[in-house]
């Protein structure tokens, strides 16, 4: 009914950026609609998190219980369900992350609260909520409305709302953990990706290949081109899914974030999980489709057949090099 609630996200003792991104957007919505902004942090030893979050919220509700040491989406659903019953928030904001994606949809279904996911924008006009989200891997935007109801749930895309300290000093409330049934799901362990032989995060120049290269047989040609340019070879997720290159080469939210001087994307359409992980000085994209989302971040673009362009480009680079 009233209030904007942000569910803070943390993993292995670290608050995740999405928490502050949601609080930034939540603050904006709260300001425009006169709603209050509450952050909710659920876990074990949440006190320090709550204090940090208090600078960005009106109220922080911290739930601290030793049984909450490891994330469990089912338990999050049970706890949030009790909190929703008690506070009846108008809007519940959750990250569109591996954690948020895990518990938000089931929470919405169990409570019969309308949800839309992976939002890139939100508007709150009185009690009327409108969301913008993307379809077809970022090629189309959709405006989503909600059937009038007491509460709404949204998940927010990472990296869209750059956080800034808002300087409030929110009230800290520690709430008793609502009772929850034991979960059938058991946490076993975290596994970190093995360190590979090539560290693409250290490269000054990256030639990054996507599904658009068409076939694993084109990998050697791309490797040769990268070598001619003095670059390392990286890739997008579909290339790893197809086992054309190993996971250590993957640029993306589930892979690596890269910060080269030059990023040359070849045959990468640019899903947001990829774009969010490219922090280059200059981005060049080669793609068949002039409306591929990769061009949303590219300084220079070439539309055409990469299999024709890359060998010619390699020749031109070698020629320029020879002239030095």
């Amino acid at each position: 009914m009233s209030g904007i609630f942000v569910v803070a996200e943390h993993r292995k003792g670290v608050l995740r950026d999405i928490t502050f991104e949601m609080l930034k957007k939540g603050r904006e919505l709260a300001g425009a609609s006169g709603e209050s902004l509450t952050a909710l942090v659920i876990g074990k030893n949440t006190g320090a998190f709550a204090e940090r979050i208090a600078a960005s919220a009106d109220t922080v509700i911290a739930i601290d219980d030793p049984k909450l040491e490891n994330f469990n989406g089912e338990i999050y659903q049970n706890i949030l369900s009790a909190i929703i019953d008690e506070h009846k928030p108008l809007l519940i904001m959750i990250g569109h992350t591996a954690a948020g994606m895990d518990f938000a949809p089931g929470l919405a279904a169990a409570k019969n609260i309308a949800i839309t996911t992976d939002c890139v924008d939100l508007k709150l006009d009185g009690q009327k909520l409108t969301a913008v989200r993307q379809l077809y891997s970022g090629k189309i935007n959709a405006e989503i409305s909600f059937k009038p109801a007491e509460s709404y749930i949204v998940t927010l895309r990472s990296g869209i709302f750059p956080p800034e300290p808002s300087g409030t000093s929110g009230k800290l409330l520690s709430a008793a953990c609502p009772d929850f049934p034991e979960s059938a799901k058991r946490f076993i362990e975290y596994i970190e990706a093995a360190t590979g032989t090539v560290d693409i995060t250290q490269a000054d120049v990256l030639v990054s290949v996507g599904q658009g290269i068409g076939d694993v047989k084109n990998i050697p040609m791309m490797e040769a081109f990268a070598q001619a340019l003095g670059a390392s070879l990286s890739c997008s997720r579909p290339v790893v899914d197809r086992k054309w290159l190993p996971q250590e080469r993957q640029v993306g939210s589930s892979g690596k974030t890269v910060k080269p001087k030059v990023y040359l994307a070849v045959g990468i359409s640019g899903a947001f999980q990829h774009l969010t992980a490219v922090k280059a000085d200059i981005i060049i994209a080669v793609n068949k489709d002039p409306r591929a989302p990769i061009f949303n971040i590219a300084d220079y673009g070439i539309t055409g057949d990469l299999l024709q362009i890359i060998p010619k480009l390699q020749d031109a680079v070698l020629k320029l090099k020879g002239g030095n």
């Binding site: 799901k185 946490f187 975290y190 596994i191 990706a193 589930s254 892979g255 690596k256």
Partner: peptide, 12 residues
């Protein structure tokens, strides 16, 4: 699959 190369193993 979580973010940034981190995975989580669960049993159900």
């Amino acid at each position: 699959e979580l973010e940034a190369g981190m995975n989580e193993v669960v049993e159900l």
